[in-house]
Write a protein that binds this DNA or RNA. Structure first.
Length: 330
DNA sequence: CATCAGGGCCCTG
DNA sequence: CAGGGCCCTGAT
């Protein structure tokens, strides 16, 4: 068994560029940057109107602060970038372009809005969150790592596995008074054996992590290429990755690739929750839920469900929801 | 103490 | 196409 050295800690970054972004209206800042149903990690930090994360641009690991500088109908984001040295104009541009993609800042939600505002059951909820993007701060590789530690366990152990991996392979980054962890690059794991990974208590996931990391490293999996595929081809490509099944594919397609129709899978524990939300009863079959939601929201089924799901978990942050606690076990 | 299920997926029959 | 097994951990 190996010992786990502390993750490298880079010297505090200085501010190295600012910019403004203008998302297409409507844009909901907190709905987009805070996802209360997601695994809480040390990889980002949210508080109302402010979001911190890191982002890799080439070999550079850049700190990013995003602030709400507008309104829902006239959105504007103040972006500050932090790095150990001055960032080139090209690097700054790359960060901004990546933010536009990761948060779908130019998404046109007008027909989604029209459709959902006609939904009798949830129109108030859709009004409350309109402008929220189905998004994630993570790259494909990073969300794959998160998805991996989420598999076949409960949130507590997922956090523990992620912490162990970050302590061994991650980087700590300090900027603007915050300290965040950053996920390693795929190449970092190239010389690492499966047994060594198992030593971090990630179990059978070691094999999966090794395999897809290597595929990223040798560009067999390439996020930029995948972005250009149509929904079906993307789904096939993701499903073909060893260790990636229907649930992880749904998450990646929706949140990394913004495929708003990607409501393609309902896990049993989720079915119980949707049953309550949509039908007001405890146990509607997953395939019925899938059919009904698809018929109801069509090409926006994944985005619509995202609003409804996150709204529930927002409520949970404010007051205990007994029936929900029984289903999720954190 | 032993047993079991968990925010999933692979593999076998 | 259904169901057992997988690493490990905390709950029972």
């Amino acid at each position: 068994m190996m010992t786990s050295p502390q993750s490298p800690r880079v010297a505090p970054y200085a501010q190295s560029g600012t910019a403004q972004l203008s998302p297409r209206a409507p844009f909901h800042f907190d709905g987009t940057f805070r996802k209360p149903s997601h695994l809480p990690t040390t990889l980002y930090r949210w508080s109302p109107g402010v979001f911190y994360q890191t982002m890799r641009v080439g070999s550079k690991l850049v700190g990013v602060r995003i602030r709400d500088r507008g309104r829902r109908t006239a959105p504007r984001l103040g972006v500050a970038m932090f790095y150990s040295e001055r960032l080139s104009a090209e690097d700054r541009r790359a960060v901004l372009n990546e933010l536009v993609f990761r948060y779908a800042l130019d998404a046109d939600l007008s027909s989604f809005r029209t459709k959902t505002y006609r939904d009798e059951q949830f129109r108030t909820l859709f009004r409350r969150w309109m402008g929220t993007r189905a998004s994630t701060p993570y790259s494909l590789y990073e969300l794959l790592v998160i998805g991996l530690v989420l598999q076949n366990t409960q949130a507590k152990r997922s956090v523990q596995m992620l912490e162990a991996l970050l302590a061994r392979f991650g980087t700590k980054v300090r900027f603007d008074g915050v300290e965040l962890d950053a996920i390693w690059e795929p190449a970092t794991l190239s010389g690492v054996t499966e047994d060594e990974l198992r030593g971090l208590r990630i179990g059978y996931r070691a094999k999966i992590l090794s395999r897809f990391s290597q595929q990223f490293d040798n560009h067999e999996i390439d996020e930029t290429t995948l972005r250009m595929l149509d929904d079906l081809a993307l789904r096939d490509a993701l499903l073909s990755v060893y260790g990636v099944g229907p649930e992880t594919t749904r998450i990646l397609a929706t949140e990394v690739f913004h495929r708003h129709a990607a409501f393609t899978h309902v896990a049993p524990w989720q079915a119980k929750i949707y049953s309550r939300l949509f039908y007001g009863k405890p146990a509607v079959a997953a395939d019925k839920i899938l059919r009904d939601v698809t018929r109801r929201f069509g090409e926006y089924s994944a985005l619509a469900v995202h609003y409804i799901w996150e709204d529930l978990f927002w409520k949970r942050t404010r007051r205990r929801i007994d029936w929900l606690e029984a289903e999720i076990r954190l």
